[in-house]
Computed example of a mutant assay.
Amino acid sequence: MRLLFAAAAVALLSQAAVAQTQTEQNPGLNPAINFKPKGSPESTGAVAPGANSFTEGQARSRIEALGFSDVSDLRKDDQGIWHGKAQRDGRSVEVMLDYRGNVASK
């Protein structure tokens, strides 16, 4: 019984260590703002209006982190959504970024 308890404790502690290591490897990733690392698919039209505190540089960085390149003509509309142009998979697309960090393209 004692051995079983010890094995369960080790298993729980090792899971916590793995979770901590993954967070340390990705500082700045905050799931509360739905930021997706490079290579993840972008949001599909799920941008929402709101008080956007991203600077133009931060908006560009977030869009580029999702695999877009040549991000240009960024402007923030009166609903707090950044709009611009970019390249993705060899084609020109319009991109949008909302206050939560969600990116959509069309």
Results as ranks from 00 to 15, higher is better:
residue 1 M to Q: 14
residue 1 M to A: 15
residue 2 R to P: 04
residue 2 R to W: 04
residue 2 R to I: 13
residue 3 L to W: 00
residue 3 L to R: 15
residue 3 L to Q: 14
residue 5 F to N: 14
residue 5 F to E: 09
residue 6 A to Y: 03
residue 7 A to Q: 08
residue 8 A to C: 13
residue 12 L to G: 15
residue 12 L to Y: 05
residue 14 S to K: 05
residue 15 Q to S: 14
residue 15 Q to I: 06
residue 15 Q to N: 12
residue 16 A to C: 11
residue 16 A to W: 01
residue 18 V to T: 12
residue 18 V to Y: 10
residue 22 Q to P: 12
residue 22 Q to I: 00
residue 22 Q to Y: 01
residue 24 E to P: 15
residue 25 Q to H: 08
residue 25 Q to Y: 07
residue 26 N to G: 06
residue 28 G to M: 09
residue 29 L to G: 10
residue 29 L to W: 12
residue 30 N to Y: 05
residue 30 N to V: 05
residue 31 P to Y: 07
residue 31 P to V: 08
residue 32 A to L: 12
residue 33 I to Q: 04
residue 33 I to K: 02
residue 34 N to Y: 12
residue 34 N to L: 08
residue 34 N to I: 11
residue 35 F to Y: 10
residue 36 K to P: 12
residue 36 K to Q: 13
residue 37 P to C: 04
residue 38 K to E: 15
residue 41 P to S: 14
residue 41 P to Y: 00
residue 41 P to N: 12
residue 42 E to R: 00
residue 44 T to C: 02
residue 46 A to D: 15
residue 46 A to W: 08
residue 48 A to F: 11
residue 49 P to V: 02
residue 50 G to F: 08
residue 51 A to G: 05
residue 51 A to L: 11
residue 51 A to P: 06
residue 52 N to V: 03
residue 53 S to D: 10
residue 54 F to P: 00
residue 55 T to Y: 03
residue 56 E to T: 15
residue 56 E to I: 13
residue 57 G to Q: 07
residue 57 G to C: 09
residue 57 G to I: 11
residue 58 Q to H: 08
residue 61 S to C: 08
residue 62 R to E: 10
residue 62 R to Y: 03
residue 63 I to L: 05
residue 64 E to V: 11
residue 65 A to I: 06
residue 66 L to K: 00
residue 67 G to S: 10
residue 68 F to Y: 09
residue 69 S to H: 11
residue 69 S to F: 00
residue 71 V to W: 04
residue 71 V to K: 01
residue 73 D to V: 13
residue 74 L to P: 09
residue 74 L to D: 06
residue 74 L to Q: 03
residue 76 K to N: 07
residue 76 K to L: 11
residue 76 K to C: 08
residue 77 D to M: 02
residue 77 D to A: 01
residue 78 D to G: 02
residue 79 Q to N: 12
residue 79 Q to Y: 13
residue 80 G to H: 09
residue 82 W to H: 04
residue 83 H to K: 07
residue 86 A to I: 03
residue 87 Q to M: 04
residue 87 Q to H: 14
residue 89 D to F: 01
residue 89 D to H: 13
residue 90 G to F: 05
residue 90 G to Y: 07
residue 90 G to V: 02
residue 91 R to D: 03
residue 91 R to M: 01
residue 95 V to F: 00
residue 95 V to K: 07
residue 96 M to E: 02
residue 97 L to R: 03
residue 97 L to S: 06
residue 98 D to H: 06
residue 98 D to P: 14
residue 100 R to W: 09
residue 100 R to Q: 08
residue 101 G to L: 00
residue 101 G to W: 02
residue 103 V to Y: 03
residue 103 V to N: 01
residue 103 V to L: 01
residue 103 V to Q: 01
residue 105 S to V: 04
residue 105 S to D: 07
residue 106 K to V: 14
